[in-house]
């Protein structure tokens, strides 16, 4: 069975990270599993972790009065999820729910945060990588906001 640090090494998010840091990050991690419907995160709850999804699908949701829970995005195999641990007040801003059986590596944000405060090189590396994910998610969200499939500019899309 592979160790967590081996699994991290295989993930593009950790490409090029020094071995010493990988060992430390791996030491903050644990393998977790969730069944469909289980909560991985709840809005306003303390955010002390982030996740690397290895299997299954996770829905990022929020509660809209009068509509119930609305899913904004799904994340799946290979995706990194959770950056609320990085910034005060360290609380989740959305709910996250397992859509089906999910297996993931849960990494401790608190111990990483403390390490990053002491070791700014690691802090910069992680922040740079999270910034890239945030940028990609923002771009995808902007595309969703464009509602490109809903308003054809010409008689018929693709025609």
């Amino acid at each position: 069975m592979k160790k967590i640090v081996d699994l991290l090494r295989e993930h593009p998010f950790f490409d090029g990270i020094e071995e010493e840091y990988l060992e430390f990050i791996g030491g903050c991690g644990e393998i977790v599993g969730y069944s469909a419907g289980d909560a991985l995160a709840e809005e306003h709850a303390p955010a002390e972790h982030f996740f690397l999804i290895r299997q299954g699908r996770v829905a990022i949701e929020t509660y809209v009065p009068g509509h119930g829970k609305v899913c904004l995005q799904t994340l799946q195999h290979g995706d990194i999820f959770g950056w609320s641990w990085l910034f005060p007040p360290h609380q989740w801003t959305f709910d996250a729910r397992a859509v089906d059986r999910v297996r993931a590596i849960r990494l401790g944000g608190k111990c990483l945060r403390e390490k990053c405060s002491r070791d700014t090189e690691l802090g910069y590396e992680l922040m740079r990588r999270f910034a890239r994910i945030m940028t990609e998610r923002l771009q995808a969200t902007r595309m969703q906001l464009l509602d490109i499939y809903g308003h054809p500019s010409r008689p018929a899309g693709g025609q």
């Binding site: 119930g68 995005q73 799904t74 771009q139 995808a140 969703q144």
Partner: peptide, 12 residues
């Protein structure tokens, strides 16, 4: 709710 597929942009 009930859709178990992917939600997001096709670029993802």
């Amino acid at each position: 709710r009930g859709w178990t597929g992917r939600i997001g942009a096709v670029t993802d």
